[in-house]
Design a protein around this nucleic acid. Structure first.
Lengths: 134, 134
DNA sequence: CTTAAAATGTTATATTATAACATTACATTA
DNA sequence: TAATGTAATGTTATAATATAACATTTTAAG
């Protein structure tokens, strides 16, 4: 049976829960600190939960920040590919969805004789709020 | 005066040299190990040289690998934006150049009310060699 | 029930990166 | 050329991020 969010384990649920209720990406040790009262004691427990959540596409890693974010999209393609807008002022992160980036990248890759599988894209700039403020 | 490769310092030259002569991205501690005979003794010396080289665009960081690569392009836009093709089999990394990605991303960002400044793109897949082998 | 795969708990350690601070090199210009 | 400010260096210590190893328990499928 396919892994769905219903049959996550306790640790996985705990980690996913804190990420889903966070307004910003969280670091692994921040997660650890925040959930120690729920019985998770070691970094490895957090990393293992994160690994599984990433594998099933419920969580993505922001590589340039070493931070983790819950995916808000139902069945997005992000088990493999991720695309984010990252505000350089307020650090707000927005996941790009419903985009045709994979198609576009596949073409770009073709030009370089490269067989596209997936991607990680991090776009930096200013979110609307920070842009209008400045 | 603009910083050019001619007036790099000793440590910066040493680090750039090893990166330019490497066929693959190198990790900071690999660099450290390889150049200890040249008088660089601490991680900080490597990281400081890398920081400067990244700042002037001679080196880029592959975020998903914590690895560093020398830029082969003259005056590319990569002080700000970087785009790589990364082979999942042989780990070969190719920098995408002369592309119109910034324009494209700027449009994508606009749709989300986001002011594009720069990006980091990592495309994973198979290089030509590994693709034909499999 | 049995069994195999997955997840857990735990301790230790590896890997990646920065803080803090004293010192030195170097270009500018008064 | 002496003064000065900025950048770079050297060094020690430590912070932050992530995995190894291994014994045990839980879970799901046959």
């Amino acid at each position: 049976m396919a892994i769905a969010s219903e049959n996550l384990t306790k640790n996985q649920k705990t980690v996913l829960d804190i990420l889903e209720n966070s307004s910003e990406p969280l670091k692994a040790y921040t997660i650890l600190f925040d959930i120690q009262k729920k019985g998770i004691k070691s970094p490895l427990q957090v990393y293992r939960a994160l690994d599984k959540l990433i594998e099933i596409g419920k969580v993505h890693k922001i590589e340039s920040r070493n931070a983790y974010i819950a995916c808000k999209h139902e069945g997005c393609n992000a088990k493999t590919s991720t695309s984010f807008l990252i505000c350089e002022l307020c650090d707000k992160v927005t996941e790009l969805k419903n985009n045709n980036l994979p198609t576009y990248f596949s073409k770009q890759a073709d030009k370089n004789n490269f067989n596209y599988k997936k991607h990680n894209l991090e776009i930096f700039g200013l979110c609307k709020l920070c842009f209008t403020k400045n």
